[in-house]
Write a protein that binds this DNA or RNA. Structure first.
Length: 593
RNA sequence: GCGUUCGUAGCUCAGCUGGAUAGAGCGACGGACUUCGAAUCCGUAGGUCGCAGGUUCGAUUCCUGUCGGACGCACCA
């Protein structure tokens, strides 16, 4: 929501409240959030619409009558408000016709300043976002790519909305699965390194994890040997630790390379090997306070049946921690490390139950911040052929996928004969590949399982990342030809001349201007409900709106220099907004493609 | 069995706290490149919002039931 729209919402809300007071109504009109602001279906009805239905009961009047009274109340507010638009009752709706020159001025200012995003609804809020959390026994796959881009994009959105964001990763670097790849390496590895085999280091580790299956066939005692390795690891056996450290480093290094390629990063890494004993103390304290109970065999339990959950084991009968116990400890540790207002866990929806239990246990332990924990659950990524399964070898490797998309993007660049024009075709191709992949993964609401269709994601037309990148590149192309020098000169003085704004005040420019103006409300909604898909939808709407606009409104090839300059200013604002939106969605912005 | 979640056009998906005529893309069909890059644009066809009740001035949206899919209910993570 732009400043001007917010101004109208506040004014309308105050007028409603005053109306209630003047009628001596005690119950009031609720809070401002309850006042719905929407777009009228047709531009000739106005630019903002406030439905008055919900106030009919309170005022004991028809919605249309209320809208009428509101119109005259607001119209009497005087010049200060009316400078920004005009209220009009349209049936049961109170609509506002915005002063377009004000909106145009606000929007065009984006082309001249880099710090144009001034609406910060999350200002001052501290949000920690946990995502990725890979195992160190194999490389990342398609599911991780969805997790990574969701976490990174959400973090960027929250930051853009004013929040202070801390991105954290928890590396699952211990446990039986790690020991399996270690054991297979002991048997088949022959002391070789990833370099020796010419493999990316995490793929190298993953290869031995797969080889464990072969080992099981050759040696029926393989599972037991892996268990033994885990016991050795826990007892601190030097040789086991050395091997663990070496393979872990290979895995983590390789995974970080994929992060860098994908453009995701973290402010802090937690390692399960360092946190897996945490939480035990808190559980024992909870036990002594009667929050938990001890079973006959010595195990410690939480009884969550009264909130619709089951009984959960927190400590084994031998007193050791389990998964949820670690998470209890880690959450408490984090609240101390960096006291947050909110902690978001980006984790597959398979673990929804786990997080409900975790949050409830933390609440019972007396941590008031437990109500600020949020599980951003996302669905599985399926293939047209069915679910990805490790055992059936249908897992899509992250690096391989990006490679394949890059090859296809490069072929497309060559087919268009643009390889000489884009500079480095391979580099541009990878950026197009990432744009395609990230947009595809973000366009769907996180909660839903989604179908990853390679065919469709590779068709670079329609509702896709490359389409958005293409519109950005077209905007850049127009600006290049239009002479950035003149605009750059104006950046010094800042602002846009009133004449420049007036030349854009007509019906053909308005849809694009209105779309640009709605950036803030899209950002606010995306941050509030934690769904990057809202920004993805906005990105496509903006790109498509721009596409339609520049077809009908020649920027450079028109005879009026003032009009050209005004339109150039508008293109500049589009480019600036698209660049920002792409950054929020982890879509590389391209000047040429 | 219990719980969570999803069900919108042939396909893949939007639809923000209930609001004015449910929207995109793909695919299909028909158009537009001597004009700022056609990876584009324009038009047409296509929906009983799974089904049945309920609440409401108003329900794709909220509630109940039901059918179908997915996931979960380990002293695994």
């Amino acid at each position: 929501m732009t400043d001007i729209k917010r101004l109208w919402k506040e004014a309308t809300y105050k007028a409603l409240a005053n109306l209630a007071t003047s009628m001596g109504l005690e119950s009031g009109v609720g809070d401002m959030e309850a006042l719905v602001a929407e777009y009228p279906p047709k531009p000739e009805l106005g630019d903002i619409g406030f439905p008055m239905f919900s106030y009919a009961k309170l005022f004991k009047k028809s919605p249309a009558a209320i809208a009428g009274e509101m119109e005259s109340l607001l119209a009497a507010k005087g010049e200060t408000l009316l400078r920004y638009g005009r209220p009009k009752a349209v049936g049961p709706y109170l609509n506002i016709f915005l002063d377009r020159l004000s909106i145009i001025g606000e929007v065009l200012a984006r082309g001249t300043r880099s710090d144009w995003n001034t609406y910060l609804p999350f200002n001052g809020r501290k949000v920690m976002v946990e995502f990725s959390c890979p195992n160190t026994n194999k490389p990342l796959h398609l599911g991780h790519l969805r997790n990574n881009v969701l976490g990174e994009s959400l973090s960027r959105i929250l930051k853009a909305a004013g929040a202070q964001v801390r991105k954290v990763n928890l590396i699952n670097d211990r446990g039986i699965h790690i020991c399996k790849s270690m054991l297979a390496y002991q048997v088949y590895g022959g002391g070789r390194s990833p370099e020796d085999e010419g493999l990316k280091s995490d793929h190298f580790v993953g290869k031995y994890y797969v080889l464990f299956n072969q080992l099981k066939k050759e040696d029926p005692g393989a599972e037991e040997k892996a268990q033994e390795l885990l016991r050795l690891w826990e007892s601190g056996d030097a040789e086991t630790l050395a091997l663990w450290k070496k393979m872990n480093q290979w895995a983590v290094e390789g995974i970080k390379t994929t992060y860098a390629r994908q453009g995701v990063g973290f402010d802090d890494y937690y390692f399960e090997s360092l946190t897996y004993t945490k939480g035990k103390q808190e559980v024992l304290e909870g036990l002594s306070r009667g929050v938990f109970y001890r079973d006959g065999d010595g195990s410690v339990w939480a009884d969550l049946e009264d909130v619709g959950l089951d009984r959960k084991v927190l400590l084994r009968r031998d007193g050791t921690s389990i998964y949820i116990t670690q998470d209890i400890g880690t959450a408490i540790q984090r609240s101390k490390d960096w006291p947050f207002d909110e902690l978001v866990y980006v984790v597959a929806s398979e673990q929804h139950y786990h997080f409900r239990a975790l949050f409830e246990i933390l609440r019972r332990l007396g941590y008031s911040w437990s109500k600020n924990l949020f599980h951003l659950a996302y669905g599985l990524v399926n293939l047209p052929s069915g679910r990805m399964k490790t055992r059936e070898g249908t897992v899509v490797d992250a690096d391989d996928l990006i490679d394949e998309l890059t090859v296809l993007a490069q072929k497309e660049i060559e087919a268009k004969g643009r390889d000489a024009l884009v500079g480095d075709p391979a580099a541009v191709a990878e950026k197009v590949a990432l744009g395609a992949l990230h947009y595809y993964l973000l366009q769907t609401s996180p909660t839903k399982d989604m179908l990853y269709d390679p065919e469709q994601s590779l068709s670079f037309t329609g509702n896709t990342g490359p389409y958005i990148q293409y519109m950005g590149a077209r905007a850049c192309s127009i600006l290049r030809k239009g002479g950035e020098g003149e605009l750059a000169g104006r950046r010094e003085t800042g602002g846009v001349s009133p004449a420049g704004a007036a030349v854009l005040n007509n019906e053909s420019d308005w849809p694009l201007l209105r779309c640009l103006a709605s950036y803030s409300s899209a950002l606010e909604a995306a941050a509030r409900v934690k769904e990057p898909s809202i920004m993805a939808a906005y990105a496509h709407e903006l790109a498509s709106s721009f596409s339609g606009w520049y077809r009908d409104n020649p920027v450079l090839s028109n005879p009026d220099p003032e009009l050209s300059q005004g339109r150039l200013d508008l293109v500049k604002a589009v480019k600036s907004t698209l660049e920002q939106v792409c950054s929020l969605l982890c879509i590389p912005f391209l000047e040429v493609m």
